[in-house]
Design a protein around this nucleic acid. Structure first.
Lengths: 291, 291
DNA sequence: TATTTTTTTCTCATATAGTGGAATTTGGTC
DNA sequence: GACCAAATTCCACTATATGAGAAAAAAATA
């Protein structure tokens, strides 16, 4: 028991509520007192109603409680991806050690998946053949193939490993991810990850020498069906970029370059220089291979 | 008790876990069974650990439970603002009725604030003098002046009512909002609302015939201190717009118009036509009053 | 300071959250 | 269908969450 009650007290007092006011119709004042003093745990149904009355989301509540911001999950994937991008072997090893502990203690599939992901990252950075972890990569694939509800965890896991997979697998899993997570439609964080996956899938489809034109159209359809809000300029801009690359690939060179240039100039105008550089770089790669 | 256990069961089964695996080290299998069958409530500490093991956030969990997406709060403000913008009196009355009930039952300040806000919206749309609700508007102000922790609720409440306030009050409260909510720094939703408030404040500062130049600079400093991520193009673009308006106001007409035009063209390029129209409209108003 | 009123804590009683292990069901194998 | 193993439920029991009301403390009023 982590004494969540004490946090409730802090908040209640800062809102100037008496215990009576907070408890009214929910639970007894005497129990609230005990809970707030950290002398008792509280049932889910009760804390839900208390937080509602304090007009506080669970997210805020936990944040106020221990200042641990983005949930452990989000944090884990952010760290892992960061370590990979920066080729930071030390951090990767550290993360892997933690993941190994968890896997050894609980033996749950998710922990093993995390472990596999980190292992593969390490191999790639070290420049080793990944055959040593070959079978465990299969394990991760198997996990994703069997998922029935794609929650935030699965989406992030997939998004972090799809670049390792063969095209057919990407096509199947991206479809799954899109279709089997639609029930989260209203949750921003999940929504954002789905969009990221679709973007990556589209980029992937355009990646090889022989682009998957048909599949590309399907995924573009998915993306457009999401009805991206007007103020989500980043996604709209990236969408423009991907469409531009597509045009180049199918031969409409001038039109395509024009579109991508627009993407880049928008990034530049808004001072997002790193993003501009990345986009420019990508454009050059595509143009080079066309020669 | 809303049978949250049944939702846990669904998720557990879809993840292919046995009760043994989920319960291991957290609680007994027999109790988990009871809980999952909806025959018992569960303590906060336990459900936290279960969800952690299921790699599910509370947000996702509640969403899977009852499909009620964005928390009640977010939903309330979204609805209220929507009704106001669309001048939808019917919806406003409906919201007001619900708010009135809550206020009568619980007598909590927050419910009264909601009530006041809706009441003022209605008066404005009806074109009535707001003197009838005059004193209750004071109540809302008093509430915001006394807040010590600006959570999501307070930020939204303020953001929805600041346009009714005199300049001095806006200056003070916007400062409060910024300083007293910084502890939520890592929570996206809160962060986004703070940014919205700063943007509105800046717009407000530029609004009158005699702009509050000094204050403007202070708030712009706040906004820039937030270190807006490169991929938050909407905010960056709006920032550009506000800076442009500022330049116009202080006399650098050509430079300012140029900046705002850039904002508009970015919106247009990305197909955000409504936003483009709004920005254009605003620019014209500013230009007109300068004549 | 004494008195009244409001708010919080304490004591004890009860309901219910949570455990261990036996009994039952489920699912696969012969 | 009988048998086995794993997974789940049931049952008796314990620990603890929660309630009612008295006692104590704090705040307000005189």
């Amino acid at each position: 028991m982590k004494k969540y009650g004490e946090t409730v007290r802090r908040i209640r007092e800062q809102k100037g509520y008496t215990m009576q006011q907070l408890a009214e119709g929910i639970l007894s004042v005497s129990f609230l007192s005990k809970f707030e003093r950290g002398e008792s745990d509280i049932s889910l149904s009760y804390i839900i109603r208390l937080l509602e009355r304090l007009s506080l989301t669970f997210e805020e509540f936990f944040y106020l409680h221990d200042s641990v911001g983005p949930g452990e999950l989000e944090h884990f994937f952010d760290k892992a991806n960061e370590a990979y991008v920066n080729r930071d072997l030390e951090q990767l090893t550290q993360l892997r050690k933690i993941a190994l502990d968890k896997w050894e203690i609980h033996g749950l599939e998710t922990f093993r998946c995390n472990l596999v992901m980190l292992g593969v990252y390490e191999c790639i950075i070290r420049g080793e053949k990944t055959t040593s972890t070959g079978d465990s990569l299969e394990f991760l694939y198997a996990y994703l193939f069997e998922v029935e509800i794609w929650g935030y965890y699965e989406l992030r896991l997939y998004n972090s490993t799809m670049f390792l997979m063969p095209p057919e697998m990407v096509i199947t899993l991206s479809k799954n991810a899109f279709e089997k997570s639609s029930r989260f439609g209203k949750l921003k964080k999940t929504d954002k990850t789905i969009i990221a996956i679709l973007m990556n899938t589209l980029t992937y489809m355009m990646g090889g020498a022989v682009p998957y034109v048909e599949q590309y159209k399907v995924f573009l359809g998915y993306l457009e069906s999401l009805d991206i809000p007007e103020d989500d300029l980043y996604i709209r801009n990236t969408q423009l970029q991907i469409k531009g690359i597509y045009e180049i690939k199918i031969g409409n060179r001038v039109k395509g370059i024009d579109m991508v240039q627009k993407t880049i100039s928008i990034f530049t105008d808004l001072g997002s220089n790193e993003l501009a550089a990345t986009a420019e770089n990508y454009l050059n790669i595509v143009l080079d291979e066309k020669k």
